[in-house]
């Protein structure tokens, strides 16, 4: 029988893969993809708890707000990445060290 634990394990795996993506990639767009994986794992957790534990729809409404914030985040982040590409001609995050003293 499929239970809450199955969804939590899938969500934990997605979360750790997202962490891995954020830590290892040098390309800014790849790092954004990792952030999307992390947000999806959080959403999966919220919806699973909403079904198995809470018994109401508050978890799903939270997930909708997370999707809204993710959309806003990715739009602003890509604007920053494009602006960085225009200034530095690269999206390698190691090269964005202008603030380093």
């Amino acid at each position: 029988m499929i239970g809450l634990g199955h969804y939590l394990v899938i969500s934990a795996a997605l979360f750790s893969l997202g962490i891995m993506c954020v830590l290892t990639r040098k390309n800014a767009v790849s790092v954004l993809m990792g952030v999307e994986l992390i947000l999806n794992s959080a959403n999966l957790n919220l919806v699973a708890f909403s079904k198995y534990a809470a018994g109401n729809l508050n978890g799903q409404v939270f997930a909708i707000f997370i999707i809204i914030v993710a959309a806003a985040e990715v739009a602003v982040a890509l604007a920053i990445v494009l602006s960085m590409y225009r200034m530095l001609r690269t999206v390698n995050l190691d090269r964005a060290d202008t603030l380093k003293g």
């Binding site: 893969l17 962490i19 891995m20 290892t24 990639r25 040098k26 390309n27 790849s30």
Partner: peptide
């Protein structure tokens, strides 16, 4: 292509 770095510590942290 994209470069990767610190792969081994990241795998450890992921696990």
């Amino acid at each position: 292509k994209t470069e990767t770095f610190q792969v081994a510590p990241s795998v450890l942290l992921m696990l």
